[in-house]
Design a protein around this nucleic acid. Sequence first.
DNA 1: CGTTAAAATCTAAACGTTTACATTGAAGAG
DNA 2: CTCTTCAATGTAAACGTTTAGATTTTAACG
Lengths: 341, 341
Amino acid sequence: MGKKATILDVAKEAGVSVATVSRVVNKQGGVKQETEARILAAIEKLDYVRNAIARSMVRKETKTIGVIIPDMTNPFFSKVISGIEQAALNDHYFTIISNSHESEAREEEILDHYLQRGVDGLVITTANETGHQLDAFMKSNIPVVAVDRQLKQYEVDTVLSGNREGSFEAVQHLIQEGFRRIAIIRGPQHTTPGLERFKGYLKALQMHGIHMEEELIVDGDFMEESGYQCIQRLYHMDHPPDAVFSSNNLMSIGAVKAMKDLNWEIGFEVGFSGFDDIEIATFMEPNLTMVSRNMEGLGEVAFKYLQRRMREPDPSRPKREYIMAPSLIVRESGRRLRRHV
Amino acid sequence: MGKKATILDVAKEAGVSVATVSRVVNKQGGVKQETEARILAAIEKLDYVRNAIARSMVRKETKTIGVIIPDMTNPFFSKVISGIEQAALNDHYFTIISNSHESEAREEEILDHYLQRGVDGLVITTANETGHQLDAFMKSNIPVVAVDRQLKQYEVDTVLSGNREGSFEAVQHLIQEGFRRIAIIRGPQHTTPGLERFKGYLKALQMHGIHMEEELIVDGDFMEESGYQCIQRLYHMDHPPDAVFSSNNLMSIGAVKAMKDLNWEIGFEVGFSGFDDIEIATFMEPNLTMVSRNMEGLGEVAFKYLQRRMREPDPSRPKREYIMAPSLIVRESGRRLRRHV
DNA sequence: CGTTAAAATCTAAACGTTTACATTGAAGAG
DNA sequence: CTCTTCAATGTAAACGTTTAGATTTTAACG
């Protein structure tokens, strides 16, 4: 196993200059058939493969985009990433992915790495929407798009889902089915999804003339365990709610687990709906009414936005905001069920 | 926004040579306190950030590893990747991830990209265990480790789970609970997990003197839909099985869905167990007995193996094989339940 | 055959680092 | 005062491409 063949080796082998080889490798045309054939043969013979690093060096582009999300183990993010990666690869871009674990420090570390590495673009679901962690990044004029959360300090394209609309529908559905004392398990209020979904909840109550009760609002952190805890809390209240809306997938899982453990029967004793569909939704008895969204689609749009910025860099072009409408999948958990005795 | 500052700009600003700057940036020592301070100041002033591309160019390493898996939307893989990424980032390596969608063509495309990009190592769950898709890759002496599937044509480190042991235990458990006509939904037999899990099934039958029935062996492709179809087929047989073992997570989901649709009551009419735990396992009534494994751990080990090869390249060092033992989580679906009438 | 235009090819600089080796200056030894 | 040593720093080549501009070849035409 000798050294790797370079473009110079190929040039020598084919008896031409490196420029000519470069032209055929890049399919730029302007090379005689015969010469091209000779070069192709040399490439084949020497197992030449073009060094993308050297190429990036002179072209000043890496054909790589960075993606930072809190946790790719969350099905929502893994699907979003999958959408991004798919769209990117079709456009011959690579995707570097890192988990921030919701840690701002980790996020900055990753950003610094990305900066050194020189990604052509960045997709981020930030751990902190109001922070300044992107200062250095912005200075270098690398396009950024925010997904699912906003970047309040910066003017960047953003791809969101209709958080407010989604939770509004889910809660309204509970109301229409006759539930009145509806609790919400909120997500962190300093995040867009957390806050907006709460607003949707409020709006639904208001539109139907239902008085909001402070004690029916409990706070989780978008993780499973907190969903579990919140249900425990609600169940043991003096006047438990007659329905619960959960603000995200992981908390819904925890919530449902708790209800099962408490034998708090969904549909019969308590109504339920939640944001983001989960695998278990269709398996439960009764099955669960959920807000569903096209996660892969979200990722695709994010890449499309990024792509545009990468192709036509123009910092003065105003930022765009894309909001993808979610849909409510009505199943049974939002209905008032009565047991046939 | 002017051009980015280079090491030369910093050198000029600080009134030293690029070599000295390089030395402080790389913390190599041998630089006078005072000089270092001046250089640090210049770096600060110019917002200098070292260009990793140029660095890679001369160091001939990219500090990047490539990961190819069939589908990161599958919770198993997303967890494995998460483990890899975590371990890699701790060691200051980046992780490039691509989905092959079980397509060999896609896989080769990705490999080619990785080759050009020059990853320092590769972790792969290959779409085709007997193919020659890595020929080009191997020529360049880049370390490779296979995860969850083997690379039959190549001598590479491999990280697997105890597929045979896992399914053996799961099936044995069914037997011990009194089931006799146990069907298996197999995965593709040209993959290690597919084949080995089948072998575990056979071994369990054999050890307990149970005669294997051809018709109880049905083939899926590790995807949800095939699990659904297989159950349909089994249910409508003249003599349906009294228990079913499913070879992977996605097929288990499909299987359970089908059983629900058919009203084929798990635990009462039919026993069930499956390889890889799934979220819904604990929510079902009865809940499901499953083989569970430490997926993040699998990823971590994969990186460790890769790391060793990257650090101490020695093609003659024999390949290693790590097999992580799974554990059976006994719940109710593997028991014979009787309804209290 | 000479001229010209177009096509094909070549030359060499540039990209931003790292690093082997060279140089400088100062301290210490004799 | 000269020689040696060592620490600090500098010089320049190398990494493997791309590409603008220069040069050569070919084809076309009269």
